[in-house]
């Protein structure tokens, strides 16, 4: 299913500098609520067409950053630009460029799905005839074509989330800001949402997405930013961050006998933190880099241990997240 959604809206005309500038440019962004520092000098640049995953524990500042980008919150200091437009100086132009889906949102229950999209389409100034052409495409994209005449209050949570996503797309924005779009969804609805997001990614949209379900993010994002206590503690390509974090790695060694001896030998080697032994082999928590790892293997072979396998346990985004956020800025 490949759905083309293009409208003749003025979004592109709104940002003459947009072609050259990154989609999002945040510099020294701070937000204070009374004594609480929600954001502390955030810097972030997201190029066009990137799918950026925002990761962080609850209250870290993800939603605050997204609200500022969506022109719903004024920053205390710093600047945030979307498509080259400053969110505080040109909020109307920014709103043309973004489709925002908050973590919690309501719907107008007495509207039918089609009417709901017509209302938002009209609110973005899309002519009626164009809306009539566009809305069936959007409903098809989010797999709600068979629910077009259903009242919104009869839709399931997952369907409402998808309808809200269609609402975000009604004016064909260049940037989608999705705050926990899969929260509260059952596994099937989550998979459906993920497929739609992949489709949007293939359409070239820039997507900023936050989620607690990290394996889902890992599958679709190009870059991640880890935020904790209002600070960006890590950001960059998912693989890069994973390899950076892999300095603390777990080695899995399977031996053909002499496991106790191997455990004693490994215990005396540099960079080895901790050794666990179970029925599947010896697990070594290792602080060294690739070179030290190679020396460790070489030493084992020299000592005459018969090695069946020597491998590095796969770290996923969850491991990275836990590693980075286990202390105040420790991962930085």
């Amino acid at each position: 299913m490949k759905t083309t959604i293009r409208t003749d809206h003025e979004a592109r005309a709104a940002a003459p500098a947009a072609a050259e500038s990154p989609m999002i440019e945040i510099r020294g962004l701070c937000k204070q609520f009374g004594a609480f520092q929600a954001l502390n000098s955030i810097d972030l640049v997201i190029p066009k067409g990137t799918v950026f995953g925002f990761v962080g524990p609850n209250g870290a500042g993800k939603s605050t950053t997204m609200s500022i980008l969506a022109t719903l919150l004024a920053p205390t200091s710093g600047t945030a630009k979307v498509g080259g437009c400053d969110v505080t100086r040109h909020p109307k132009q920014v709103r043309k460029l973004i489709g925002y889906m908050p973590d919690f949102f309501g719907v107008y229950d007495q509207f039918k799905a089609t009417e709901y999209l017509h209302f938002y389409g009209a609110s973005y100034g899309i002519p009626k005839a164009e809306r009539a052409r566009l809305i069936p495409q959007l409903l098809e994209l989010v797999n709600l074509t068979d629910k077009k005449d259903a009242y919104v209050d009869t839709l399931s949570r997952g369907m409402k989330q998808r309808l809200c996503l269609a609402r975000c797309l009604v004016h064909d924005p260049e940037l989608l800001i999705l705050d926990e779009p899969a929260s509260g969804l059952d596994p099937r609805a989550r998979i459906e949402m993920r497929e739609i997001l992949k489709e949007l990614k293939s359409m070239g949209k820039t997507i900023v997405i936050s989620s607690h379900i990290l394996p889902e993010l890992a599958e679709m994002v190009d870059e991640i930013g880890v935020i904790e206590h209002g600070r960006m503690v890590a950001k960059g390509n998912v693989q890069e961050i994973q390899s950076r974090m892999r300095v603390k790695r777990i080695l899995q060694i399977r031996l053909a006998g002499r496991e106790e001896e191997a455990e004693q030998y490994l215990g005396g080697r540099p960079f080895v933190n901790r050794i666990l032994r179970d029925g599947r082999g010896v697990h070594v928590h290792f602080d060294g880099h690739d070179e030290e790892q190679s020396e460790l293997l070489h030493g084992l072979i020299e000592q005459g241990f018969r090695i069946i396998s020597f491998s590095e346990a796969q770290t996923n985004l969850e491991d990275v997240f836990l590693e980075i956020t286990k202390g105040d800025g420790e991962g930085e």
Partner: peptide, 13 residues
Amino acid sequence: EKQTLNLLLTTQQ
């Protein structure tokens, strides 16, 4: 309270 205001405020209205 119904959490629809933010959606409305991000439109061109």
